[in-house]
Amino acid sequence: MIDFLIASLTDGLLLGFVYGIAAMGLSLIWGVMRVINLSHGATIALGMFGIYLAFTGLGMNPYLTLPLLAAASLLLGILVYFVAVHRVIDAPYLSTLLATFAVNMIVIGIGTAIFTTSPRNVDFSLGSLSLGPITVTWARVLAALAAAVVTGLLYLFLYRTRLGKSIRAVSNNKAAAELMGIATSWVLAFSFGLGTMLAAISGGLIATFFPFTILAGGGYQVKGFVICVLGGLGNPLGALIGGLILGAMEGIIPAFMETSWVPVLEFILFVIILLVRPTGLLGSKT
């Protein structure tokens, strides 16, 4: 029993890293521009299909494709920002919510027309890694590692570069950053691009070990919200920790009850945390 628990916990935690970076993207976008990005799920699905097409179509190694995917999704995010979000960035929050949802509909609609909704998977097996009682697939280990590297790079970017510092400044205090001329459209657009990039990478990594459809992103997007709220909206590092908590829950809960109850508990937890600690478990008390 203990062995089983440790094994499922490890599995869950590894998964948590990957969930974490998708949530980090949501959190970053919320922090910088107070937008709840409902196109996140569609971007996750695009990441999945990006890796899938590169692998099955061109025979490219999924992990080596990631930087390419990152660059493409960064550009896509910037484009989405200027087309769909920029015009309504100061309008009531419903506008950006629905604008990003419209983007989601467009992407999913076109995606469904091209790929249908039949399940796919990336058939790139690397075998498993055994350490004592724990056996995990290499795909999950590498995905968690990649997610950790991405997190590290994101932090280097946010703390060491001029643009990164601008993004943090806007996130801390938009009004002040506007007065200082930092909160330019480009900073916002780039933040949106970064958030989109994180979603796509997360999707690409999930695709290496789970089957998926073009609609699969929606479920992960909702998990992203749960994680953000766990870690505190607008706090990227909190999102990673939230991801680990959610991953651990997904690993452990099935040991005690049927797997189908996992989402019920997740969402109830989500609503309760929103109510008692809207700033997240890590955030300061309001």
Partner: peptide
């Protein structure tokens, strides 16, 4: 095949231009 995409585009146009 693309009804969802068309509906999305319609929604986007409303939000951006006819709020």
């Amino acid at each position: 095949n693309i009804q969802l995409a068309v509906a999305g585009l319609l929604l986007l146009i409303i939000i951006l231009f006819v709020p």
